[in-house]
C-alpha cells in the first residue's frame, strides 16, 4: 500500500504521506523522525475540520493546511473519517501537489474502503 503512497508522493512533490481512517494511519511513509508531525497534525486537522464545519452545514471544506516553520502539512478529507495527510517541503509547488492529490482521490478512496472491508489482510 505504501508503494502507491510513494508513487503519489513522487508525482505530487511531497515527502511523506499517510492514509488515516478513524484516527488511525492504515498506511504511512512518514519516517520515524517525522512521525511526530503526523501524530500532531492528525489531531490538529480533526479539530480544524470540526471547527470549520460549525460555520458551514453543507458543502464542507475538504482541504486543510498547517504550516510549521518550513514544513507544510496538507490534509484532504476524503470521507468523514478518512484523511489523507502529506508533508510538502517549503520550496515545492503547492498548486501542483493539490492538483495531483485531488486527481488521486478515487484511488485513495478505493484503498481506504478495501482496507476497511478486509481488516485482516495486510
Amino acid at each position: 500500500m505504501s508503494k502507491i503512497l510513494n508513487k503519489l508522493e513522487g508525482m505530487a512533490g511531497t515527502d511523506y504521506s499517510a492514509l488515516v481512517i478513524n484516527n488511525r494511519p492504515i498506511a504511512s511513509t512518514f519516517s520515524k523522525e517525522e512521525m511526530l508531525y503526523l501524530k500532531l497534525s492528525q489531531q490538529a486537522f480533526v479539530h480544524i475540520f470540526k471547527q470549520a464545519d460549525k460555520i458551514q452545514a453543507n458543502d464542507l471544506y475538504d482541504e486543510a493546511h498547517l504550516q510549521l516553520g518550513q514544513r507544510r502539512l496538507l490534509c484532504f478529507r476524503l470521507e468523514d473519517n478518512i484523511l489523507y495527510i502529506s508533508m510538502l517541503p517549503q520550496t515545492n509547488d503547492i498548486q501542483k501537489a493539490q492538483k495531483v492529490i485531488r486527481g488521486a482521490f478515487s484511488v485513495l478512496r478505493k484503498i481506504a474502503s478495501a482496507s476497511t472491508h478486509q481488516p485482516q489482510k495486510n
Binding site: Q51, E63, H65, L66, G69, Q70
Partner: peptide
C-alpha cells in the same frame, strides 16, 4: 479558534517550529 489551536499546539510541543499558517480550502 484556529489561532488558539496554533497557540495550543505550540504550548504542547514547544520543540517544534512555529506555526505560521492554517488554511481551509475546497
Amino acid at each position: 479558534s484556529l489561532a488558539k489551536l496554533a497557540a495550543a499546539i505550540e504550548n504542547k510541543a514547544p520543540q517544534l517550529d512555529q506555526i505560521r499558517n492554517i488554511s481551509l480550502h475546497a
